[in-house]
Design a protein around this nucleic acid. Structure first.
Lengths: 207, 207
DNA sequence: GGTCATGTAGACCGATTGGTCTACTTTTAG
DNA sequence: CTAAAAGTAGACCAATCGGTCTACATGACC
C-alpha cells in the first residue's frame, strides 16, 4: 500500500481488502481504521456511513477489474486467443494470495434483497464481463456472439466459484478447455450452415 | 413449516432459511427464535452456540441437497438424460421463491479462512456433486469421467452463481446446452479413437 | 508567527450482539 | 394427582457495533 495514496483512497482500499477477505458484515469500522491507519473522524469525513464505504469499495474493485480486460488485450492479439487468455489470467488471479473469490458474488451472498445497491453494482460488473466477451466474439465473426458470450461468462463465473470453494486454480484450465470445445463446435456448425446455405444464397443473388 | 416437526429440527430449519436469505453474520439469534417460535433457552439447550447452529444448518441443507440426486434419477432413466435432467431441475430450483443462490457458496464467501469448519462442509458438498456427476458419466461409458465431471460440476456452479447474481434462471439452459456440446464432442472423439485403434487391437488379438 | 484546515486518539452514545439465568407455565409419565 | 421434564418470556450481562464529538497535534500558507 503506497504511502502517497490519497487518504480517501487509502481508506477505500483497506476497506475493500477487508470486505474481500472477511466479508462485509464481519468487517468492523475499527478494523478498517487500523488497516488504513486513519482516525475515525477522518473516515467519516470522507464517507457518511459504512454502507457508503461499502459502495465505494465495490466501485473501486470494479475499476480494478476493468484493468483485467486491458491485460487480456495485451496478452494476445487475435480475438480467439484473447478469449482463451482470459482464463490464463484468471488462473494467475486464483493463484495470487489476494484471491478470496469474487467480491461481487460475495456481496450478493450477503445482500440478496433485490434492488439492493450493492447487488446492483455487482450485476453491472457482470454485464460488463458479458459485454467484453461478446465484443471479442464479434471480432472473430462468431455466428452467435450473444449466446456464446452467455456461455463463456457462465464458465468464467463457474471457474471463480470452483476455485474459491475448492481451492483449485485448475478450474481455470477446465473452463478454458470447455471454451475451446464450444468455439470449435460453434465455428464448425457455422461452416456447415454456410455450405448448406450457399447454393440458396447464390440463387437468390442471381435471380 | 409443519407443526409436527421436532423442536430441534424446527430451529435448524428456521435458522437455515434465515442464513440463506440474509446471510450468516446478518442473522441474529433473536430473529431465529421468532421464526422458529421458540424461546432462547430452548435453542441453547439444543445448540451450544450460534456457530454450532450454523454447522447444523449447513448439514441440514446438505441432506436436503442429497434429495436432489434422487429426483434426478426419477426424472430420467438413461445416464445421459439424467445428466441433462440435472439442469432442468436446477432451473426449477432457480425459479422457486426459495432461491438465494447456494448456501455453501455463500458460507465460503463469509468464512474464507482455510480450515474453517463451515468451509469444510461446503467443500464436502461440492465433492458429492462431483461424485454424483462422475457416477453418471461412468454409467454412460464416458471415455474420461473424471475430467468430464470436473467440467460439468463447474457448469453447475456457474449456472447457480449466474442465476443468483443476475436473476436469470435461463443460466440453467445455457449450462445444459454446454453439457450437450461437451458430451457430443467427447463421445465423438472417443469413437474416432476407437476406430483408429481397432486395427491395432485386432492385430494384437490375432498375434 | 499566527491561522485555519486537516489530521489523530479515543471517550462516549445508544443499539444490538451472542449468551446466561431467573421465574413462571405447560406437558408428560408413573 | 403429582412431580419431574421441558417449555416460555424476557431481564440481564459483557462485548461489540456504527456513529458522534471533544481535545489536542500537525502542517501549509500568507
Amino acid at each position: 500500500m503506497p504511502k502517497t495514496l490519497k487518504k480517501s483512497e487509502k481508506i477505500v482500499r483497506a476497506a475493500m481488502e477487508l470486505f474481500y477477505k472477511n466479508g462485509f458484515h464481519a468487517t468492523g469500522i475499527e478494523s478498517i481504521l487500523k488497516k488504513a491507519q486513519v482516525s475515525k473522524k477522518t473516515l467519516y469525513s470522507y464517507f457518511e456511513s459504512k454502507d457508503a464505504l461499502i459502495l465505494e469499495a465495490l466501485k473501486y474493485r470494479s475499476d480494478q477489474f476493468n484493468g483485467f480486460w486491458d491485460r487480456v488485450r495485451e496478452r494476445a492479439s487475435e480475438p480467439r486467443d484473447r478469449l482463451l487468455a482470459i482464463f490464463d489470467l484468471q488462473k494467475e488471479w486464483f493463484e495470487s494470495d489476494m484471491f478470496y473469490g469474487c467480491l461481487f458474488i460475495n456481496a450478493v451472498g450477503e445482500y440478496s434483497r433485490k434492488g439492493n445497491p450493492f447487488k446492483k453494482v455487482s450485476q453491472t460488473v457482470k454485464v460488463d464481463t458479458y459485454e467484453n466477451i461478446k465484443g471479442l466474439l464479434e471480432e472473430m465473426s462468431h455466428p452467435d456472439p450473444s449466446f456464446a458470450a452467455e456461455k463463456i461468462t457462465l464458465l468464467f463465473e463457474g471457474a471463480i466459484v470452483t476455485a474459491q470453494v475448492s481451492s483449485k486454480s485448475r478450474s481455470a484450465n477446465i473452463a478454458k478447455e470447455i471454451v475451446k470445445t464450444i468455439l470449435d463446435s460453434d465455428m464448425k456448425a457455422e461452416k456447415h450452415k454456410e455450405i448448406e446455405m450457399e447454393p440458396g444464397l447464390v440463387n437468390e443473388v442471381l435471380s
